[in-house]
Structures are given as structure tokens and as C-alpha cells.
């Protein structure tokens, strides 16, 4: 079967959606290779399909057999993002893998949420430490009329509020932030390694 202009545009649309979804989780070159393979599959299926009066139905049938592009992308991402994160250990790759798992499994969602809280806590502590040199008078322990009101960074200090021990708060925040980041990232990598090992025993993407 030779595709009409409309059919060709439908195939390009499918591949475009697949590539867009894959790029959310995967490196550009990895996504491009996956799309190229799926395109090869579609082209061959189209070529071997007998010409039909309704090209649209034939094409729909063919693409339905392959699965919707977002589901196919999810299956790819769950498989590949974890491997990339385990092998590289990079923060970006780890985040992509955690997002992919969170979207695919209930356990992935729960673990991803816990790790997200860890990463956010680390980021908050490191931001407090980083703000001290920029806003020297706004980081520290906050007191109002001798009463303790909180610790950390406050963008605007109201009249009457006293901020003390700024450099101590900066140092403690930096150390705690670094430790929290290290522990959270270590836990994330351990979880992803576990997922990778388990998957070798239980093959098959969960989403398809």
C-alpha cells in the first residue's frame, strides 16, 4: 500500500508524538534511534498491507497494533531511563528515571515522592546557605521582642525583628544540605539498582 499525503502525515504525526514523549525521559540520540526503529516497523507494515479502499482504517489498525505513542514511550522510558541512571549516576538521569517509574508503578510513585521530599529539603537547606553572602542580614535565627520566630532565610525582615547567628546557620545549613543531598541521591541510586536487578528477573514493560 502506498500512502497518500494524509496517510503520510498521520504516520509523521505518530512518530512526532512518540519522539516528543521519549525526549521527556531519554537522551536525544537514544530517543531518535528508538523512533527510527519504530518508523522502520511502520514503513514495512504499510508496504506489505494490501491496498484498501479506506486507507485511514488500514493505517489506524496498523498503528493500534503498535500501541498509542505515549504508552509506547512510557514502556521505553521505564526500560531505558533506569539503565542510564544506574550506569551514569548523574542527577538528571536519576530524576528522569524516577519520574518514569513514578508514572508507571504505584511503588515507583511512593518512592519517588519520598525522594522528591529529600531532594527538596536538601535544596532548601543549600539555598539558605547560599543566600547568606547575598543577603547577609536576612539569614540566621529570627527573634522578635526576645521571642524565637524561626531560622533560615527571610526575604524581608519586618521592623523590630533581630537576626542572629547568621554564619552558624549558613554553615549548619550547608553541611545538613550536603548530607541530605548525598543520602537522598544514594537512596535513589540504590532503589534504581534494585529495580534494574529485579527487572532482569521479571521482564516486560508494565505499561503495555
Amino acid at each position: 500500500m502506498n500512502l497518500s499525503e494524509a496517510g503520510e502525515s498521520r504516520v509523521r504525526g505518530y512518530l512526532f508524538m512518540l519522539e516528543s514523549s521519549l525526549r521527556t525521559f531519554l537522551r536525544r540520540d537514544v530517543a531518535a534511534d528508538a523512533v527510527r526503529e519504530v518508523e522502520s516497523h511502520i514503513r514495512e507494515r504499510v508496504r506489505e498491507t494490501e491496498p484498501m479502499p479506506n486507507e485511514r482504517d488500514a493505517l489506524n489498525q496498523l498503528l493500534e497494533a503498535l500501541g498509542p505513542p505515549h504508552r509506547l514511550a512510557r514502556a521505553y522510558s521505564a526500560e531505558m531511563a533506569v539503565d542510564e541512571a544506574v550506569s551514569s549516576g548523574r542527577l538528571g538521569a536519576t530524576a528522569r528515571a524516577l519520574v518514569a517509574l513514578a508514572l508507571n508503578t504505584a511503588r515507583g510513585f511512593a518512592v519517588g515522592l519520598a525522594l522528591l521530599i529529600g531532594y527538596l529539603a536538601a535544596a532548601a537547606l543549600l539555598i539558605v546557605a547560599a543566600m547568606k553572602p547575598v543577603f547577609p542580614d536576612n539569614v540566621g535565627l529570627r527573634w522578635m521582642n526576645g521571642e524565637f520566630r524561626g531560622a533560615g532565610w527571610e526575604l524581608s525582615i519586618p521592623p523590630g525583628m533581630v537576626v542572629t547567628h547568621g554564619w552558624w546557620v549558613m554553615a549548619i545549613s550547608a553541611v545538613l544540605g550536603a548530607i541530605t543531598l548525598w543520602l537522598t541521591h544514594r537512596a535513589a541510586r540504590r532503589y534504581l539498582r534494585l529495580v534494574s536487578e529485579r527487572r532482569q528477573l521479571r521482564p516486560g514493560p508494565q505499561s503495555l
Binding site: V38, L66, G67, E79, P205, L208
Partner: peptide, 12 residues
């Protein structure tokens, strides 16, 4: 069941 199932597994 779904033809797309195969490709991610082949990649892994």
C-alpha cells in the same frame, strides 16, 4: 499482544 511491546525489551 501489542507489537510495540517488543522494541523496549529488545533495547533492554
Amino acid at each position: 499482544v501489542g507489537e510495540g511491546t517488543i522494541y523496549p525489551i529488545l533495547g533492554r
